[in-house]
Amino acid sequence: MTAEAPDALRVENIAKRFGSVTALQDVSLHLRKGEVLGLIGDNGAGKSTLIKIITGFHRPDAGRIYLDGEEVELKSVSQAQRLGIQTVYQDLALVNDMTVYHNMFLNKEITWRPLPLLNNRKMKHLTRRYLDDIGVSIPSIETEVAMLSGGQRQAIAVARAVYSEDARILLLDEPLAAMGAKEGAMILDLVQRLKESGGVSIILIAHNYAHVLEVCDRVNVLQHGRITYDKPAAETSVEELTELMVSEYRRARTGGGG
């Protein structure tokens, strides 16, 4: 092996089946320290399954996972979280009827130790600081998140993952889905700032290739349960990525016709 620092995350030969459906055949990918890796692929290519394995939700049928060069067995979401792996889900992990600051600290509540009493003042204070840090404007942290826009909620979910949980590896599952141009830009800025801060390595799943190329260092394509493409973002283009996906579709059509 080389002398450089080990990858923040390395996944080798992961396979996962659900009954007769093979979601992942043989996936290997790596994420360098401080890197933003773009992961693209069609619906059903296995992206979400892969994310759920890395996040401890599913157990893989085969394969190994390494964190900072050390092999780990991820048995649960909370175990993965303790190891610093945080996911911001497509279906947001926010409770609509709860306030912004209670969401920010759900299951990470700050208490007046050793009493199990909630320290609301400190949670509010920290929530304000986190949101100010990432430059997100929220009308009030005491409103329910149901009253906020999709971008604001996504930002809260990201802030929650990065700050309150001490994330080392951040998995962003389509953070720009169903979001306006302005809000999308806000989230991309956020990813950019996280990258510059250097403390966290990020896997970003997205459908919009322009977005991916804007913030990612490297791009991987997942097709039929395998990584089929791995290039630095600087050496590829929206056209190339689009061509890759479309040709797959054409091949599938002509192949399926025979």
Binding site: T87, A93, V95, N107, E109, P116, L118
Partner: peptide, 21 residues
Amino acid sequence: TVFGNWIFGVGGDKVAARNVG
């Protein structure tokens, strides 16, 4: 209490609450 916060969280969105552990 923390438990009270969980009561609200689970009642508001079981999936989200489970997602955050």
